[in-house]
C-alpha cells in the first residue's frame, strides 16, 4: 500500500504574527516556518501505518516556493520515504492545491491520502474535501482514529456533539484531526538520513493545472484587543449580566 501525505509550509504555531500595515496580509518576513501541525499528524499516522506493516511507502508532497523543500525534509526525517515538490510562487488557494494534489494522485495512485484537516494559516478546511470530490474518492474528514482492513478504512470522526464512525472504501481521502496521534520528534540520525532521500520536483504547468487565484483578499485585520474583565459578587449578578449586558443567555 502507498500513502500520500502533505506537508504545507506555514508560520510556526508559536509565532505571534503581525498584520502588515497596509492590511494586505500578515508579515512573514524572518518568521519561523514549520510543517502545518495537522499535516504533521497526518504524516505521523502514515508512518505508523507503514511501521505496523500495513503500508510499504509514504510519499509526502508540498506545494509553494522553493523553501517548502525544508518542510518536505522534515517529513522525510519523521519517516516519509520520498518527497514530491510542486514549485510555484503563485498565491495558491485551496482549489488550486486540490487540483495539484489530484494530478499527483493520478501520477502516484496512492491507496490512501491523508491530509491535515486544515492548515493553521488560512484555516480554510477545504483542500481535503475538494480533493476527494475532484478525484472521485470517498472522504473521511476530522479523523481521530483510522483502522485499515480489507480495502476499507474505518474512521472515527470528531463531529459537533460527539464522535461518528464511518467506513470508506480505499483509496480514500482522510483528513487528520488533533487527537489522531501525537507526532514524534524527528530523531537526529533520521534528519541526517533524510538528506539522502529523493525529492521529485514539478511545476503546476507540468502537472497541467491552472493555479490562478479565484478569490481576492480585500483586507486582513488583527482581532480586536481583549477587554478587561470584571469580578462579580455572586451567581445572581453573573446571570443578570449575561442576560442583560452581554445578552448571551
Amino acid at each position: 500500500m502507498k500513502i500520500l501525505v502533505t506537508a504545507k509550509r506555514v508560520v510556526d504555531a508559536n509565532v505571534n504574527v503581525r498584520v502588515l500595515s497596509d492590511n494586505s496580509g500578515v508579515d512573514i518576513n524572518n518568521v519561523k516556518m514549520a510543517v502545518n501541525p495537522f499535516d504533521e499528524i497526518a504524516i505521523e499516522e502514515a508512518v505508523r501505518i507503514r511501521e505496523a506493516g500495513n503500508a510499504e511507502e509514504v510519499v509526502v508532497a508540498s506545494i509553494g516556493p522553493t523553501q517548502c523543500k525544508e518542510q518536505i525534509r522534515t517529513a522525510l526525517a519523521l519517516g516519509a520515504d520520498r518527497g514530491i515538490f510542486v514549485e510555484t510562487d503563485a498565491d495558491i488557494q485551496p482549489l488550486a492545491v486540490a487540483k495539484l494534489l489530484k494530478a499527483l494522485v493520478d501520477k502516484e495512485n496512492p491507496d490512501l491520502i491523508i491530509l491535515g484537516k486544515q492548515a493553521i494559516d488560512g484555516d480554510n478546511i477545504q483542500t481535503g474535501q475538494m480533493l476527494a470530490a475532484l478525484a472521485g474518492l470517498p472522504q473521511a474528514t476530522f479523523a481521530s482514529e483510522i483502522l485499515l482492513a480489507d480495502g476499507e478504512a474505518t474512521v472515527t470522526r470528531e463531529i459537533d456533539g460527539g464522535m461518528e464512525t464511518i467506513t470508506v472504501k480505499t483509496p480514500a481521502v482522510i483528513t487528520a484531526d488533533l487527537r489522531l496521534n501525537e507526532p514524534r520528534y524527528a530523531s537526529l540520525p533520521n534528519i541526517m538520513k533524510a538528506k539522502k532521500k529523493s525529492i521529485d520536483t514539478y511545476t503546476p504547468e507540468e502537472l497541467g493545472v491552472d493555479v490562478t487565484p479565484r478569490l481576492t483578499t480585500l483586507k486582513v485585520e488583527p482581532p480586536s484587543d481583549r477587554q478587561a474583565g470584571v469580578i462579580v459578587a455572586d451567581v445572581e449578578e453573573l446571570v443578570d449580566k449575561l442576560k442583560n449586558e452581554a445578552k448571551v443567555i
Partner: peptide, 21 residues
C-alpha cells in the same frame, strides 16, 4: 552540516526540550 540540516536538528532538539523536558 549544511545549514538546513543543522537547523532541522536544532529545531527537533528545541521541540523536545520545550515540550518534553
Amino acid at each position: 552540516l549544511d545549514k538546513e540540516t543543522l537547523n532541522q536538528l536544532l529545531d527537533s532538539v528545541s521541540k523536545f526540550v520545550d515540550n518534553r523536558l
